[in-house]
């Protein structure tokens, strides 16, 4: 793999910025695997999860990854995401668990019927908490980064959650150096964010150097969209209905992956990773600007996190 060589060839001089981040993340992954009884990696299929998964392969090489992956499936993820998930995890030979809030889905929960906040509460947060509890996981890795959003910028690498899975941002454990306190009482849990110090640019740069496979939705192509003002809404679910003339084929891509009704696409020509990086450097809005959920309310990410979202 030519790209891997490029990353390692700096080894004897000064470590590059990405090599430092990689070493820090691997350290975190190994600490958790060694200190907890039953860790799990939350796998969201997005670019950050792809990087986290590669780092886990590296951390335990030549051994296998010593914990399963858990995908919290809302039922409204893009078809291409699910295909990618199944193929890629099979190829790597990792154990994949899927958890859905089936009772809520059976009752027809969707963002149009419930509004995005309640829908996320049931299909994401509740499903996540149930999944973790039912399997008895005491530690869960998440791919969140501090540069994503200002409440995330406040979070520890080891983020303590009480018995109800809640985050108390005013009372976080001190976390000095790279010594992590993962001690918990039964029923409590820790969320671990090995990518805390990576930026969006770092993630793409690493994907480029390491040749990490990602979901094709990140690359520009002609896609069927509802064009509403500045927004491009992907047409996948039957309850996402457009007004006459709104449905168009647009050369576009997704900057971050979520549920199809709630993730806006962007107009783009970027169909390779370098082109995505070039586009990223020119962006004037954050990657979350295209997410509908964060804007419901001031501080809505913080609220979701307090309730147990990761």
């Amino acid at each position: 793999m030519a790209s891997a060589v490029a990353l390692s060839s700096f080894a004897f001089t000064r470590l590059s910025h990405l090599q430092m981040l990689e070493a820090e993340s691997i350290h975190i992954l190994r600490e958790v695997a060694s200190e907890f009884q039953k860790p799990v990696m939350l796998y969201s299929i997005g670019k950050d999860s792809s990087v986290m998964l590669r780092l886990a392969q590296k951390a335990f090489y030549p051994g296998p990854i010593p914990f399963p992956l858990l995908h919290v499936d809302t039922g409204y993820k893009f078809r291409e995401m699910i295909e990618f998930r199944d193929n890629y995890t099979r190829e790597l030979g990792v154990e994949l668990l899927v958890w859905r809030n089936e009772p809520a889905l059976a009752q027809g929960a969707n963002p149009v019927a419930l509004g995005t906040q309640r829908c996320c509460g049931l299909l994401k947060t509740q499903a996540l908490l149930d999944g973790l509890r039912e399997h008895g996981f005491d530690a869960a890795f998440g791919g969140a980064r501090r540069d994503e959003e200002r409440s995330r910028a406040k979070e520890r690498i080891f983020s303590f959650r009480d018995r109800a899975g809640q985050w108390d941002p005013k009372n976080q454990r001190p976390e000095l150096w790279n010594i992590f306190n993962g001690r918990i009482h039964p029923g409590e849990g820790i969320r671990i964010f090995p990518l805390s110090n990576w930026t969006e640019l770092d993630i793409w740069h690493y994907i480029h150097l390491e040749n990490i496979p990602i979901v094709p939705l990140y690359f520009a192509k002609e896609r069927k969209m509802l064009v509403r003002g500045d927004s491009l809404i992907p047409v996948e679910q039957s309850f996402v209905k457009g007004l006459p003339g709104e449905e168009q084929w647009v050369r576009s891509r997704l900057r971050s992956l979520g549920c199809s009704p709630c993730t806006g696409a962007i107009r783009s020509d970027a169909d390779t990773v370098p082109k995505i990086i070039a586009e990223l450097v020119s962006f004037r809005s954050s990657e979350r600007a295209n997410r509908i959920i964060d804007h419901d309310q001031d501080g809505s990410m913080e609220l979701k996190k307090r309730e147990g979202y990761f």
Binding site: M1, V5, L7, S8, A11, Y61
Partner: peptide, 11 residues
């Protein structure tokens, strides 16, 4: 040993 191959040295 690393995932990217064996190294002669590391720091």
């Amino acid at each position: 040993v690393t995932f990217d191959g064996e190294l002669g040295s590391a720091s």
